[in-house]
């Protein structure tokens, strides 16, 4: 267990900078939750059990719209489908002898940043390292969410309005740099934004909610892109 403990502490240490980054993102998410009427406890529970920025941001919109549970389920499956790819890739990096129960535990906290950190490790990746990462990043994510909701209530209205764009600005910071380097990504980003805008026009907007819009556009545009520009073996 000695190596288990040292891997765990290393996970906590490597997870700290991720946790700080998460705090900023989830604080912005908390502001959006507060604008949609969620209370701090609801935000805390949502962040503790989900650990996903885009998924939670979309969920907040669906809850505010009074969307159905089915819409929520399909929406979350589509938005978070990228984790499917990450978990599948992660399989190869874990100890092949890792029991089913332990695999299921590691699977609880697969996020973009955790995945990137795990696959950067020497194989096989220690499960305890993964638990260390989770132990520090999940509380960071949850704390930011709660404080975002609380401060959204305390701060003056004009400051809260300005903070409401923070999470979207972070999403832009995620998509723009790769779009600059890769014309395919740029085309995808532009088409997605255009499509998203078209869905807000009447009469479409009256029939299609935000949650359904994300489902339709994600499936259609990603599938078209995959047909037009299939990835080569070494691209990922």
């Amino acid at each position: 267990m000695g190596t288990g403990l040292s891997s765990y502490t290393r996970g906590i240490r490597d997870g700290l900078p991720i946790a700080i980054g998460y705090f900023a993102v989830s604080f912005s998410l908390g502001i959006l939750m507060r604008n949609s009427g969620l209370d701090p406890l609801q935000g805390l529970v949502m962040s503790l059990v989900n650990n996903t920025s885009a998924g939670e941001a979309a969920a907040v919109g669906i809850i505010a719209d009074g969307g159905s549970y089915l819409e929520m389920a399909i929406n979350q499956a589509v938005i978070n489908i990228r984790y499917f790819l990450m978990s599948a890739a992660l399989c190869v990096h874990l100890d092949p002898g890792l029991s089913l129960g332990r695999r299921m535990l590691v699977g609880f906290d697969v996020t973009d940043e955790i995945f990137a950190t795990l696959i950067g490790q020497k194989q096989p990746v220690s499960e305890y390292f993964a638990y260390g990462l989770a132990s520090i990043t999940i509380p960071g994510w949850a704390a930011g969410t709660v404080l975002g909701i609380v401060f959204g209530d305390i701060l003056p209205a004009d400051i809260v309005s300005a903070l409401s764009v923070a999470l979207y600005a972070m999403f832009i910071a995620v998509v723009i740099p790769p779009a600059r380097k890769d014309g395919r990504i740029l085309a995808i980003v532009l088409v997605s934004m255009l499509g998203s805008w078209l869905f807000t026009l009447e009469p479409i907007a009256s029939y299609i909610s935000e949650g359904v819009k994300i489902i339709i556009l994600t499936l259609v545009i990603s599938a078209l892109a995959a047909v037009i520009w299939p990835l080569k073996e070494d691209e990922e």
């Binding site: 998509v175 790769p178 779009a179 990504i185 934004m193 990603s222 599938a223 892109a225």
Partner: peptide, 16 residues
Amino acid sequence: SFLHYVPYVTLSVMTF
């Protein structure tokens, strides 16, 4: 390929 492109579409749709 599909899974590779999904995040860019979702984030763009949600943002704009």
